[in-house]
């Protein structure tokens, strides 16, 4: 599986590329239901969500790297029985937080969710993510223009990406 290098790699092609091994022998693929473009909400970080590795996704989303910080508290289970639903939350004591993002390193696409935090909103979020297998989970908090991260290893016994 190589990266698509055509002029306009659509999301569909990339998804097909990712799944092509599993699809050999299946003729009629659902080409018709092509996902609508995200042009309507131009702030959606389409490129970052397409990156496979966590480092590339962080680069595409923020354009720089994060430093680990004990002021970012990442809460996730040590062992997740169901990789389809893993409760994950982040809190931080940092000031001037503008965004919080979650990256699941071993997922087909590393970036899981990115939250924009407004002024006056408490810098913290709880959500539920899918994890394909045992993985490193990275939370990044953007505060005062700098990036801070926290990392945790989550053991997954049943994957959440249809494996």
């Amino acid at each position: 599986m190589t990266t698509t290098t055509g002029p306009h790699p659509t999301r569909r092609l990339i998804l097909l590329g990712a799944a092509s091994v599993a699809l050999i022998g299946l003729g009629n693929l659902p080409f018709a239901a092509r996902p609508a473009s995200a042009a309507a909400n131009d702030k959606y970080p389409e490129e970052a969500f397409k990156q496979k590795s966590e480092a590339d996704a962080i680069k595409a989303l923020y354009g720089r790297t994060a430093e680990p910080s004990d002021k970012v508290k990442l809460d996730a289970p040590e062992i997740a029985e169901n990789g389809g639903v893993v409760p994950v939350s982040v809190t931080t004591t940092l000031d001037k937080v503008t965004s919080i993002s979650f990256f699941v390193a071993e997922n087909p696409y590393a970036l899981a969710a990115s939250y924009r935090i407004a002024d006056g909103t408490i810098p913290g979020v709880a959500n539920r993510l899918k994890m394909a297998k045992t993985t490193k989970l990275v939370a990044i908090v953007e505060a005062d223009g700098k990036l801070y991260s926290a990392t945790k290893e989550v053991k997954v016994t049943v994957g959440g990406c249809g494996g």
Binding site: F49, A112, R128
Partner: peptide, 23 residues
């Protein structure tokens, strides 16, 4: 005012849940 905006990819669980607080 937009107090909280989420950008999600496919790795967010089915029937998504999210919790936050604001002032």
């Amino acid at each position: 005012k937009d107090v909280f905006v989420a950008n999600w990819g496919t790795a967010v669980s089915k029937d998504p849940y999210v919790k936050f607080s604001f002032k």
